[in-house]
Design a protein around this nucleic acid. Structure first.
Lengths: 129, 129
DNA sequence: TCTTAATTACGAAAATATTCGTAGAAAGAT
DNA sequence: ATCTTTCTACGAATATTTTCGTAATTAAGA
């Protein structure tokens, strides 16, 4: 899952990657059905997108059978990291603090989640000694 | 600065908004000069973008003088909030927790910033009682 | 006044992303 | 064996975003 020189996914491509990360190996039909739960998408539209993603090396494909089977070729974490960096720069001028404060402030956060964050902060603090 | 039905800025538009938020009122020339500190952009390219942004009501314009003066018509915070929501959904499937953990984990954070986050967490916790 | 430089308006080209139609091959059904 | 369905490949239409050229106008300088 190394993806150093793999281009960033577009919005539509990311949507498909999300489904592959969640569901593992999928056929075009399966992805298209999942997409159609939210909105109408033509089958060949999905097919074309996944073919483009193959060229970009965002996905792998097993073409042994007539019905090809696709899987993500980039990891969720690495992709999130790259997209986060870009988003951070463009929207928060690189200030991860501001982003974290907004994210914590705007959205519902449970006690457990807050504990998790506190744990992470403690960990960072001990590393900072 | 109400912007309920204002469309989201594109990447290029956001870049210009950032400059307006940082520098306040600006002419096209000033924005274009600032952009050219990073990369080459033609003057009319910047002009056209700002005219489009005016139509979209992302900026205001004072056209009393021949050289028009532009200012942001949407607030930084509100824009960040909207863009964050979209980013959260598309990239982190709506989990602000995962985003926060990534942001804290990946980037350098100073002691002071961590303190700030801890304060915010405390505030959220007391509100949750 | 005449020339030059700076500015706006506008249309359209270029680049990128998304959607879809059609053709042909493969598999399954009758 | 023939018909129907499903699938891939591929090109092209559509939509969106970005870039730029040209013309007209205004202001400033010689």
């Amino acid at each position: 899952m190394n993806n150093s020189k793999v281009p960033q996914p577009t919005d539509s491509e990311l949507e498909i990657l999300q489904l592959l990360w969640q569901n593992g190996e999928c056929t075009v039909r399966q992805i298209n059905d999942l997409l159609n739960e939210k909105r109408e998408v033509g089958y060949t539209t999905t097919l074309k997108l996944m073919q483009i993603m193959l060229e970009k090396q965002l996905v792998n494909r097993n073409a042994n059978q007539r019905t090809h089977i696709y899987s993500a070729a980039v990891s969720e974490g690495a992709t999130q990291k790259k997209l986060l960096q870009k988003f951070l720069d463009s929207t928060f001028r690189g200030s991860s603090m501001k982003l974290v404060m907004q994210a914590l402030g705007n959205h519902e956060t449970t006690k457990e989640e807050l504990e998790e964050i506190k744990d992470l902060i403690k960990k960072i603090e001990t590393e900072q000694q």
